[in-house]
Design a binder for these strands. Structure first.
Lengths: 105, 105
DNA sequence: CAATTAAATCAAAAATAATTGATTAAAAGA
DNA sequence: TCTTTTAATCAATTATTTTTGATTTAATTG
């Protein structure tokens, strides 16, 4: 075993997946994933218009997706741009969900 | 369009996935999926011993997984045997999660 | 038929999560 | 510097889920 290898026990593994699935277990957050996937990089204020959600509510849901790394954030000036973390979603979801929630073939 | 085709709108689609991911967004239910996958068909009382959970609690969680058809139930005499619904899980989860939550190659 | 076992269901309580509106912080421009 | 804009965070409320123990239902066995 290499010195840097991290060994997770079963409970930690389940806890990790629990959080990721929990992040996806909400209509609003699935819609966010969908719109980010459709549009690439989107800032909070644009997304707020697209999904028609108050800013604080949207930030709350974005944080949940960000915490489990299903999305990424890039700050440019005053704006925060969000996008889908393709690698992470690909490791979690089936090919059938490609195009819906992560970038397609 | 064929007479029997069901057309789902986007909201219905998201709602459907919300429910499926919600079913998976719990440590106990992921452990249930894992054990059912390891053991094939298991009855509630055996599962109750394996996962060390009171019967009513386990039944509650089994119902949630059953409702979204991620698991199947077969009644034999007094016993209810549960197993993973391989097809449904395969349509939802990545190959990387095969062996953990649905039957392997 | 009475007793036992398996497992679903129910209602109340406890624990978590989501919503709301207000506040804060940080960047940009006048 | 003062004002505006972007977006995170906070605290209070509301809503949803989970847990618990008891009850119910159905099948099996003596």
């Amino acid at each position: 075993m290499s010195a840097t290898q991290i060994v997770l026990n079963q409970d930690q593994t389940f806890k990790t997946y629990e959080k990721k699935f929990k992040a996806l277990s909400d209509e609003i957050r699935l819609k966010v994933m969908y719109e980010l996937n459709q549009r690439g990089q989107v800032c909070v204020c644009d997304l707020s218009d697209i999904i028609e959600l108050p800013q604080s509510k949207l930030s709350y849901h974005l944080k949940i997706l960000l915490d489990v790394e299903l999305i990424k954030r890039e700050k440019i000036g005053t704006w925060n741009y969000y996008s889908v973390n393709e690698k992470a979603v690909k490791l979690l979801l089936s090919e059938e969900l490609r195009c819906l929630f992560y970038p397609g073939k």
